[in-house]
Design a protein around this nucleic acid. Structure first.
Lengths: 335, 335
DNA sequence: CTGAAAGCGCTAACAC
DNA sequence: GTGTTAGCGCTTTCAG
């Protein structure tokens, strides 16, 4: 392995000079500097990150904690990728790398903080953590630099990023109503997730405000997977009367509904309007293109990265909370 | 930060005893062992990975090198995710973590090996690297533990994983021919990629073997993006006569073709059959569901991880090459 | 302008 | 059974 010392030997100087040249610290004679740089190139020397890290107590690495890919039914991998892009972009700009850590969903033994305690990372970004299993006290007690995306811890000493789930559903429901739609069914996501609650409440609020009744059987359970959309639609088809619209808590379930509707020769949007949430890439490509609510995922990831970065560089930095606005994306699945 | 020494102090032993307990090395009295374990728990001590790494010259981390997500037109993020799942599964089983590194496509200055030279990782898996910019001599000269997925270096001292691209296209073409289809157009991927060449050759071989002519204008350029599928289809529509089938080098382009076909009121499969490659998740969900060729992506990632692991644990381990068979997935887009 | 020496947390060879 | 000591590659303080 090529070390400072080796470079120094070859260049006929002491290792400290090598250090100074590479870190622009202290004065080094021009010729010496050039000689050093030449040997660095010649030997293909890279500063050993482990040595640096041990000394500086900083590894310049961010940990992203994410459910195991096979169990990513929540919004699909695409959702996570978009967030990750944002995180990565900011991280690269500030010389951080990204370490990936997956955990099994609903596993009470999942060790969300391992990478931090091991000092493999300087801080963590948790993507939609399973709040039933996450011990959030640790974050505060152990002062773990940490940002949560997609959930909202009650503890006000924890930074998080989310989007206006309530508002998005509220607005898209209002839009449907403005188009004359009255009988609207709603398919929910996993019941223990905060965004599930917010989304259904946004829907209910809009209905209530417009004096529209929502019978119990118009609120159908789901779990964010395509298959749960299919199941829900099967149930709905059995109703005496089709709703005029179905709003789904995410795009995946809307796709399940759509495929089941096609089987049953129910035309979208002629017979029934359909709405999703998230605006995953496929949403624009299916037939008919899906109306949905877009979250600024890239920006959310980017911001999370930024907050975490500040916290790492300055542990006294206050925790930050940022809730991003969402955007209605109206496509042909709505009359 | 909690260190071995602190644990030792609290437990009233020397740090080496702590080390022994945690690593099951040498003999430690039962009572001492228990006392140590208790303090480890009490203090929430985790061995500092950086200290270990410096000493053992091993970071237990695998680097995955991947094009920047925004520029992942090749097969879409989904493709990479599936590979990643496989890599991750094996890695976790052997106590490795995964560090992500992105590079800009077609950037001659992209530093593919940085993470390794910095000792942030013990080895690298390159996902479909841009062979125009990759200096492969380095892998051999610097003995970088490395596995390439989706490309085939000519140098026989480099491990790689790929799938039977030629065979897949050959078989799917033969299948079409067996269904009575004769006039088949083919949309190519990026010209500098090995799998592009293999796929088009598989197609040509099947056509040739069956004595079917392929006029030049039936081989259309593309670059694996949806948009290039759209462009290609626009061109095809202008032909005097529609081909009886279009085979695309990947599913994304097939989706582009499909959406353009719908606009032009060309029915799939009644007016024209359509075939993709990869079997990304959406393929089964679009209308009509897309016939395609599936690569065992998870297994490919898993195997890559395994080969890399062997190479890291034993640098003398021979390089390995594994080409996975593919599977025809016949759906309704074919007559 | 350049260098010597100490120490980050851990492991491993060697004493007691 | 338990402890001492040296050293991994780097940074930093203090000398010259």
């Amino acid at each position: 392995m090529v070390t400072q010392v080796e470079v120094a030997k070859k260049a006929g100087v002491s290792f400290i000079t090598v250090y100074r040249v590479l870190n622009n610290k202290g004065y080094v004679k021009k010729e010496t500097r050039e000689k050093v740089l030449k040997t660095v190139k010649a030997l293909n020397y890279y500063p050993n990150h482990i040595g640096q890290a041990l000394r500086k107590k900083k590894v310049n690495t961010i940990g992203i904690v994410i459910p195991e890919p096979p169990n990513v039914p929540v919004h699909g991998m695409e959702y996570y990728n978009m967030l990750m892009q944002g995180v990565d972009r900011f991280a690269i700009m500030h010389n951080y790398d990204i370490l990936l850590s997956t955990y099994k969903q609903n596993d009470p033994k999942a060790d969300y903080y391992r990478l931090y305690f091991q000092r493999k990372v300087d801080g963590l970004i948790l993507f939609i953590p399973d709040m039933r299993c996450l011990d959030m006290n640790q974050i505060v007690k152990k002062k773990i630099p940490c940002v949560i995306i997609g959930e909202r811890p009650i503890d006000h000493h924890i930074s998080y990023i989310d989007s206006e789930n309530f508002d998005g559903m509220y607005r898209v429901t209002e839009y449907l109503i403005s188009r004359g739609v009255k009988k609207i069914a709603f398919i929910m996501g996993k019941p223990y997730m905060r965004n599930t609650i917010d989304r259904v409440n946004g829907f209910l609020k809009a209905m209530e405000k417009n004096g529209l009744p929502v019978p119990d059987y118009y609120i159908i359970k789901g779990d964010y997977t395509i298959i749960s959309g299919i199941t829900a639609m099967k149930k709905i088809i059995l109703y005496k009367e089709l709703p005029e619209a179905i709003i789904c808590s995410n795009d995946h379930m809307a796709m399940g509904v759509l495929s089941e509707a096609k089987k049953a020769k129910i035309r979208i949007p002629e017979d029934m309007s359909l709405v999703g949430f998230d605006d995953i890439n496929i949403a624009a490509l299916i037939d008919p293109p899906l109306s949905t609510v877009r979250q600024p995922l890239f920006d959310m990831g980017f911001k999370a990265s930024e907050i975490l970065f500040k916290k790492i560089e300055n542990p006294l930095h206050d925790c930050e909370i940022k809730v991003f606005p969402v955007e209605l994306v109206l496509r042909k699945s709505i009359i």
